[in-house]
Amino acid sequence: MPQTQLIRGLAAGSILALASAAPALAQDCERGTLDTMFCDTDGDLVADAPAEELQDPGTLVFAYTPVEDPAIYEDIWEPFIAHLEEVTGKDVQFFAVQSNSAEVEAMRSGRLHIAGFSTGPTPFAVNLAGAVPFAIMGSEDGEFGYKLQVYTRKDSGIETMADLKGKRVAHTSPTSNSGNLAPRALFPELGVTPEKDYEVVYSGSHDQSMLGVVAGDYDAAPVASEVVDRMAERGLYDPEEVKIVWESKPFPTTSYTYAHDLDPALVEKIKQAFFDFDFTGTALGEEFDGVSKFVPVTYKDDWAVIRDIQAANGVQYTPEGLAAEK
């Protein structure tokens, strides 16, 4: 399939339109919070592989979360994609997604097979698209995670979280964990409640929040540490102009997932490609400083804290909930 036609197909459609057809595909089974398209008979909170109609595509489509400029990441992921092709024996197409919603929609419709979903949208991908998280970037000793950090300019006059009262604060997007949901769940205990004590302005992404703080468009912003660290390494802002007011304990980072309906033999090759990949000397290793390999994770255990934060915010894993991300 030509690249332009493939990408056009991935970007097309709406998850709301897909959801309207879901009742016809509903299955009579245990599923917890999963969409009616899926079953979860073993209680691991992710979709079971179907008994029939497994996918074994000639071309695998891979996407990485749209946290920053997706064009940058196509080159960065090139060595891994070459490795994935070698291990699976398949052609692999990188899909530069423009939004979390588009990424979830693409996997739900069967046009996206392997994807990195950012922390907050991962539960939407699991529940609406049948994504199965299995890996995360980690250190040699298997550690992983990032922190929620609250940044402001050094000359802002903001020294504590209480100083955010009456200010204009950038959140990233409604479904973002560190950029919106975690602040709403955690900040009240720190003496400041979003919307009530300060004005929330959605910037669209972590990098836009950070750049807005530097430019003075926002008084402060809660952002993911891994994103702003990479921005600083690329010289996108001067760390000397900003300061951290508060930071959290670590959260899980981007989840790497496969579509639940892929052939099990193919899934094993995909996992092998991830867990055997050597970051050393690659653009991927240079971009993601501090990580050296992919480590195994499970959605049930490693995303429990994220589900708790989202529950505290009244998040429901529905098409309407995901639509708020657009």
Rank of each mutant, 00 (worst) to 15 (best):
E52S: 11
L84P: 06
A49P: 12
T88Q: 08
Q55K: 09
A71E: 15
E53A: 14
E52R: 11
Y64H: 15
D69A: 13
P79R: 01
L60N: 02
I76R: 06
I81R: 00
E78Y: 04
Q55F: 02
A49D: 09
A51D: 13
T59M: 09
F80C: 00
E52G: 02
D48T: 11
Q55A: 10
F62N: 00
E53G: 06
P57A: 06
F80R: 00
P57H: 08
D48R: 03
L60C: 04
V46A: 10
I76K: 03
E68L: 09
V61G: 01
E74N: 08
Y64D: 13
A51Q: 14
E85D: 05
F80K: 00
D56Y: 09
E85A: 12
E85C: 03
E78R: 15
E52N: 11
E68F: 06
E68V: 13
E53T: 07
D75E: 14
E86G: 08
Y73F: 15
A71C: 06
L84T: 04
E53D: 15
E86M: 10
A49G: 13
A63N: 04
E74M: 12
E78D: 14
V46C: 13
I81G: 00
Q55C: 01
F80W: 03
T59D: 11
L84E: 05
E86S: 15
F62V: 06
W77R: 04
L54C: 01
E74V: 08
D56S: 13
A82F: 01
F80T: 00
D56G: 01
E74P: 06
E78K: 12
A51M: 10
E86K: 14
P57T: 07
L54P: 02
F80D: 00
Q55V: 03
G58Y: 00
L84K: 01
V67W: 02
D75Q: 09
T65E: 13
D75T: 13
E52I: 10
L84Y: 05
V46W: 05
T65L: 07
Y64A: 12
F80V: 00
A47H: 11
E74A: 15
E78A: 15
I81V: 07
V61F: 05
L60T: 05
P66G: 11
